[in-house]
Design a protein around this nucleic acid. Structure first.
Lengths: 113, 113
DNA sequence: CATTCATATGCAAATATTAGAATGCCTGCA
DNA sequence: TGCAGGCATTCTAATATTTGCATATGAATG
């Protein structure tokens, strides 16, 4: 649950516009499937599939209320990730100080001859 | 650069084991392509493809040193994301307090009849 | 118990992603 | 020049993902 491949699976699951939108909505509170239909322009079966994918990834869960399924956030990873995604970044990281060392030598220059 | 679709593209680009490994290595410093070959068990052209994808996503860049291409981190988003990915999460978020309100009514109960 | 509402599932087509093989392009050096 | 090292590009086959459509399920209602 904490190794690289499961991280990758989680990232893959989230890397989809509808699923990010679903998760962002769920950070605001519980929603059922028909609630999502009001702001997602995709079909109900498609919403169901995305919810199913998010649930199998362990990111969300639901409780049953009569004929409704009320979905809510389950994984604490999701709010943290969404926060980073919403953060505004201006500019780039500072470039590398010349000249860092790797296993093969120093850059630039030492490998040139 | 900050809308939903670009977030998705960035996530898709990163959601791959080789690419996460590359980015994690780059947080330690500059590396050239042959450096990556030493710890990634994939072919050189494949590494090149991944580096190209990361570069087109604006996450990394390189400078040329003779016949070497020295890659380094460019986007400040990457370290933040990797930090979240490396964080250990134990347990789930607290379940929803009964009963939150949506556009359609309160859960559970109000829709039942 | 038939119906309706809310949601899920199965299947197939369209599309996207990935890895590998072959090859091409620079750069530095003899 | 000619050659070799370091890296990129292109093409292709395999595989995975996504969606729409049709249909199934299951709880509440009458």
């Amino acid at each position: 649950m904490n190794d690289l491949s499961s991280k990758v699976e989680t990232m893959k699951t989230i890397a989809h516009p509808a699923r990010i939108a679903i998760l962002e909505e769920l950070t605001k509170g519980v929603k059922c499937v028909s609630d999502f239909q009001q702001f997602l322009e995709i079909s109900q079966p498609n919403i169901s599939q995305h919810l199913s994918a998010l649930r199998h990834a362990g990111l969300i869960d639901f409780f049953v209320d009569g004929r409704l399924r009320c979905y809510f956030l389950k994984s604490p990873f999701v709010p943290d990730l969404l926060e980073v995604l919403q953060k505004e970044y201006k500019g780039d990281l500072p470039g590398p100080e010349c000249c860092p060392v790797t296993k093969k030598g120093t850059y630039p220059g030492s490998r040139r001859h």
